[in-house]
Nucleic acid binder design. Structure first.
Lengths: 224, 224
DNA sequence: TGCGGTAAAAATATCGATTTTCCGGCCGAT
DNA sequence: ATCGGCCGGAAAATCGATATTTTTACCGCA
């Protein structure tokens, strides 16, 4: 029925309605288009995303894994609330886990990993901030690649989760371009170069400082 | 319709079908009644748990959060597979996170926490191994209480998840009672006492040794 | 003998309708 | 005025049926 869903010639299979819905809602939450704590009414979402109730319900259940949505038995779903405490919790744990992952990643360094890192860093350096989604994807990709070699899928998964949780806060804070006053690209380069040189301590130091600075910005912004 | 679902006089609200199903399947997976990698057919589960398809589907989606079930778009769900690597991953990360949590917990010690700990440890010491479910619950409760005071909900959640993942491996390994040859109660007491005395280093040491020993047992058992 | 293709069967994904539960407002009694 | 109990409408949960997709089993042909 749905013409747009026809296979066409791409080898990418048509994603299920559930999956599409999952991505759509996820995006809404991460971008802050759905506010923290907001109730997520199935009926509303049905209209908004014009999808059936079942896929939505399932997508929301899935989003629960990511801690982006909360499920309250018998009374639906709501967007995960935010708080200073929660933000600090995310930041702290993130620093701890990413440091761990980064060190392991470096410890297991291989030339494939290094090359991948070079590539991604290049893309990041080149990426224009204008294209939001594009930039965000590359940025996450860079950070995850740094950790990717840690040999622990579980740790990686947690890091990825925390990354996303953090991104939401970043997006919720006004798109304040005080952020721009920092030389973020430079920060990335420092991390990158230390990692390539396999200097764990340096790399970890730069990485954490990168996160903490971002943290400070958000905190400042939030009170505004 | 369903007589069994009537409120009765308990103040515990009747849980939704989804929630019941969630708990039921979770139990099946944790106990190893559903084997790792096994396909989870909605139709089968419908009969087995006599529930509708929707609750089951949703329960499975929820179980995905716990990493006990995997969802493959367009071709249903399957029980999360197991492997030596995965087991090691769980154990290692668990040690790291729990140590972190335990230290923080102790650092924030309060008399309420200490009292709660005393209580739970008493229950654990007294718990008979015969009553499986009862013992397991108390055991988890003890371990989580140790960490509970760490002031980081996220960290706590991850620890809880890893605990469960580990329990599955424990249950999958034959209910080998070589396990009994260890004085587990003694191990618990060591951890407990160090924690109460706020000796982080000692407590952490005992905790990790407790886990690692369990790990060794499982590894040994697994090859059998 | 094995291979590619295909039709039937099985299972998943999704929709639409129904049932249940929750929530807010209203009313009368203390 | 405040508390509890009782509607009525809204929303969530669930069921049953249908549409889609994946698997399986089979067949004829090189």
């Amino acid at each position: 029925m749905n013409i747009a869903a026809l296979p066409l010639d791409t080898d990418l299979a048509i994603p299920s309605a559930t999956h599409q819905t999952y991505l759509a809602i996820r995006e809404l939450v991460l971008n802050g288009d759905i506010r923290p704590g907001e109730k997520l009414k199935i009926g509303d979402l049905k209209l908004r995303l014009n999808a059936g109730a079942s896929p939505i319900r399932e997508a929301l259940s899935l989003l629960t894994s990511d801690q982006l949505v909360e499920r309250i038995d018998q009374r639906g779903f709501r967007c995960a609330p935010t708080s200073q405490k929660n933000f600090d919790d995310i930041l702290t744990l993130r620093c701890a886990l990413e440091e761990m992952a980064l060190r392991q990643s470096i410890a297991h360094a291989s030339s494939e990993w290094e090359e991948k890192l070079v590539l991604i860093h290049h893309r990041l350096a080149k990426a224009r901030r204008e294209d939001r989604q594009q930039f965000e994807d590359t940025h996450k990709s860079f950070h995850m690649t740094l950790l990717e070699n840690c040999q622990s899928p579980l740790l990686l998964r947690y890091c990825s989760q925390l990354y996303d949780l953090n991104v939401r806060y970043r997006n919720l804070a006004g798109r304040s371009e005080t952020y721009g006053s920092r030389d973020v690209a430079q920060e990335h380069r420092m991390i990158f170069e230390a990692a390539i040189r396999l200097e764990s301590d340096k790399a970890a130091e730069h990485l954490l400082s990168h996160y903490r600075q971002t943290g400070d910005f958000l905190r400042a912004d939030q009170s505004a």
